[in-house]
């Protein structure tokens, strides 16, 4: 395979002039994307900001202005603070595990053989089953009484686990489901990154007598920096989207163990119809997410190119 997008050599040769200068005709091409961008991203944020300043009755009707009170209320609520910590914890727990597994799978399956292609397809297949359906399946597998997992545990002499009503197992289950589903994406990112490493570099290192571990840590890993950056951002984003399993499996419990901020937002909006507070919570979480991603991008900044 030829070069990839993540690792792009910077072109130093002089550029040919653009096909077109100015906004006019560009607008024709940009229009579909621009309209949707304005409607469903920019207006969306504006709507969130506006809603967050309102007081709403339990039927979802705006009945007054709250100024910044909703933010004050949400951020001073111990449950929401816990939810934010938990969301951060989910990111911190999910990202490294998923990256390690994805990288291991990519290294193992990088050679283009028929067998590898089949295994690769299997690793990414959970993406294609959709989260709702896979969550049903997990609910059944991990059921305390009829689930196959507990049958296996008791079969090999281990105690049964009440997966959904014990704190640590519930967290492991929700996170595990998310990682299991997303490892394929990370693997794809690393596969693309690996295929972009010029073989000469590895060959040269081998000639210098580098062993497989030295080769990996001194050559492969540094050259995967851009893929790392991209995979980290994607995994972080995905860690903020672990709502469906929580909603369908644990409802935030037991005793708040999976009470992620995103679940609280959903409950506040659609069980209590406290839309002002829910929007304030949305914006706070969004801000947190952007700060985390900005920090990650800073730490993982890549400053080299191949040329």
């Amino acid at each position: 395979m030829d070069t990839t997008i993540a690792i792009r050599p910077v072109r130093l040769k002089p550029r040919l002039p653009a096909l077109l200068e100015g906004w006019g005709p560009a607008l024709v091409f940009l229009a579909p994307a621009l309209v949707m961008l304005c409607l469903f991203k920019l207006w969306l944020i504006a709507e969130a900001v506006y809603t967050s300043t309102g007081t709403f009755d339990p039927g979802g009707q705006r009945i007054g202005n709250a100024g910044l009170d909703n933010f004050g209320f949400a951020l001073s609520d111990s449950r929401f603070q816990w939810g934010l910590w938990l969301s951060l914890f989910a990111a911190v727990a999910k990202v490294p595990v998923q990256l390690a597994l994805g990288l291991a799978a990519a290294l193992m399956l990088r050679a283009n053989t028929g067998g590898n292609a089949v295994v690769r397809a299997m690793v990414i297949s959970p993406m294609f089953f959709g989260l709702p359906v896979t969550t049903f399946i997990f609910a059944y597998m991990f059921d305390a009484n009829v689930g196959a997992v507990n049958a296996i545990l008791s079969g090999i002499g281990l105690p049964r686990v009440a997966w959904l009503s014990t704190e640590a197992p519930a967290q492991m289950l929700v996170l595990g489901l998310s990682i299991w589903r997303d490892v394929g994406v990370t693997m794809l990112v690393f596969l693309a990154g690996l295929s972009a490493i010029p073989p000469q570099i590895a060959n040269a290192a081998k000639l210098d007598g580098a062993g497989p571990f030295a080769l990996f840590f001194t050559i492969t890993l540094p050259l995967l920096a851009r893929s790392f950056q991209f995979a980290v951002v994607l995994a972080t984003l995905a860690s903020f989207q672990i709502l469906v399993p929580v909603l369908m499996l644990t409802k935030g419990g037991p005793t708040g163990a999976t009470d992620l901020a995103s679940f609280q937002i959903y409950e506040t909006a659609f069980s209590y119809f406290d839309l002002g507070t829910a929007s304030a919570m949305s914006l706070a979480l969004l801000f947190g997410l952007i700060v985390i991603i900005a920090l990650e991008l800073r730490w993982l900044a890549v400053k080299w190119t191949y040329e």
């Binding site: 969306l44 709507e47 809603t51 989207q241 909006a269 997410l289």
Partner: peptide, 23 residues
């Protein structure tokens, strides 16, 4: 514009569901 477009990647739907419903 390109950066703005990329930036909207960081608005996950799970986080922003209520206002999206309003829009």
């Amino acid at each position: 514009l390109f950066l703005l477009m990329l930036f909207t990647l960081f608005i996950p739907v799970d986080v922003i569901l209520p206002p999206l419903f309003f829009v």
